[in-house]
Computed example of a mutant assay.
Amino acid sequence: MRKLNVPIEDAIDVFDICISKVQNTDLKERLENCKPSIVTAVADYTTKAPRIELHTIATHDLINGNVTSSEMKKVYSDRMVGATAPGRYIYDKWRASAPNNICPLCAQRTTETLEHHLPKSKYPIYSVVPVNIFPACSSCNKIKLDAISNARETEPIHPYFDNVEDELWLKAEVIELKPASLRFYTIKSDHWDDIKYARIENHFRLFELEKLYASHSGEELAMNYFRINRLFETGGALSVKNFLEDSWLSMKDANINSWQTATYEALFNSNWYQEGGFKP
């Protein structure tokens, strides 16, 4: 879960670009008349998001009384996503906005698409609103689909409005079976209230991060077997421990909540692993 900078584009400017080539005069007029409603909706969103109150925004099927959900969603799908769509350059810019193209939801896979925090199927007025759209990997996008929240505790972490990178929340423990593996879990920071931690746990479950991180850590253990076994044969458990400590501190310096940091901390704290548990 990584924080991203809010897009600098104005919602109405983006909307204008997307509908600029609408040929149907009736549709164009109805879309144009949605602008005041969009401005109001954006103000409501940006007020409620920092307060963890997005779940209080009502789902809807009509915008401004006469633009259907389908028509508004097509402003995104046909007029932003399409290869020759007028808003395609904005889509590409936002999709490339995550540092190193890493998905902010899982903090692991590569970004391939855009995700709507409030799904456009339930909240079509936010179909092309910048603060509601961010880059994500296809897997996280498919997992979330049109899921919505009905309480503060279940609001997913929002990359633009939530910061969960400054406090430790991800840990792992070594499972002492052959071959060795790890189990990942969340912990509550002393500086967090119950709501924030509940949201972390919910996000962790929703996006199946335990399974994802366990899979990647298993591959990491297999890839490091030759090196660790060589250290063990030449310098014993102490050499293994020193390598694991250096790896843990290096990963921690880059990201305290990466699965790599949690992995190497758990291995560093496992005498069983260092004394031969790493062997298949």
Rank of each mutant, 00 (worst) to 15 (best):
M1T: 11
R2L: 08
R2M: 08
K3D: 00
V6I: 15
P7E: 05
E9N: 11
E9C: 01
S20G: 02
L27Y: 07
L31H: 02
L31C: 05
C34R: 01
P36I: 06
P36D: 06
P50E: 02
P50M: 03
R51C: 11
T56E: 14
T59R: 12
T59C: 11
T59N: 07
D61F: 09
G65S: 09
G65F: 07
V67S: 01
T68M: 01
T68K: 05
E71C: 08
K74L: 11
S77V: 07
R79K: 13
A83W: 08
T84Y: 02
T84V: 06
P86S: 07
R88Q: 13
W94C: 05
W94M: 09
R95N: 12
P99R: 00
P104W: 03
T110Q: 14
E115C: 11
S121L: 05
P124W: 01
V128P: 03
V129D: 03
V131R: 09
N132Y: 09
F134L: 12
P135V: 10
A136L: 07
S139Y: 13
C140Y: 09
A151T: 14
T154K: 13
T154Q: 10
E155H: 07
I157R: 02
I157Y: 05
H158E: 10
P159W: 06
P159S: 05
D162W: 09
V164P: 05
E167S: 14
E173K: 03
I175Y: 00
L177W: 06
K178M: 13
P179Y: 09
A180P: 03
L182C: 00
R183D: 08
D193T: 07
D193I: 10
I195E: 12
E201G: 02
N202K: 10
R205Y: 12
E208H: 10
E208S: 13
L209Y: 01
K211F: 05
L212V: 01
S215L: 13
H216T: 04
A222V: 13
M223Y: 12
I228E: 00
R230Y: 10
L238Q: 14
K241Q: 14
W248D: 00
K252I: 01
K252N: 12
T261K: 00
S270N: 11
Q274V: 04
G276K: 10
G277T: 11
F278K: 02
F278H: 08
P280Y: 10
